[in-house]
Amino acid sequence: MAACVGNSCIPGETLQEERQESSDIRKVVLGDGLRCNIVASSEEHSLPVITKNGILRRRKPNIYYVDSYQKRYIPSKNDSVIGIVTTKTLDFFWVDINASEPAALSYLAFEGATKKNRPEINVGDLVFCKVVLAHPDLEPELVCVDSTGKKGNLGQLNDGIMFSCSINLVRKVLNEKCRLLHLLSKETPFELVAGINGRIWVNSNSLRKTILLRDTILKAEHTPYEEMSNIVNDFATELTGIP
């Protein structure tokens, strides 16, 4: 069975339409839901096999992935995630990132942290961090600094509300085609952090506004891109009267 781009696919189907359009491309990038088994003896690759249900997508020039509705997060390197600190041990915070295992966040992985100067984070706090190690056999490892040792946007999240949603919604909100956040920011100032692990954190200067923002973002899940302005208009009308 061969899967076609843009159609639904099921595990076991193979990807066959590679490299037809542009002969100069030598590499094909396999994304989520695709796997290529390497036959050790001959240096040939087997055809890429689909490993989950969904719609096969292609991004130019040659990236293939399977798009499916998903709530469970599978860690992968360089993802930005929101975690909840569940335990503190001698050297690590153990952080729940909605994955099958808790992730490790070192005390030293914060800006300006030393052995004596530890970050003040308690159990139950939210941290926005990056995944630096995502190996199937090891716990994922997180950091709250970039490669230059600066924290950037990463770090602890104070106040506001965090809510869980499907990973598709987070992708949708972050998608360039989706003008939701852009339109919302024209209406009112607010802070938003979207963790690709299916968690979104919002904060604004009033509780009611934060509640409305949360609701609008959750509504976006069932709204097509073109109709985003409608839900933002609804948000704006409900917002009137709130300082």
Partner: peptide, 19 residues
């Protein structure tokens, strides 16, 4: 999943405001 402090305090604060 452990309940985050942010969610807890947000719910408590908003209930006090009647939201």
């Amino acid at each position: 999943t452990i309940l985050s402090n942010n969610e807890k305090s947000f719910v408590e604060k908003s209930i006090l405001e009647g939201l």
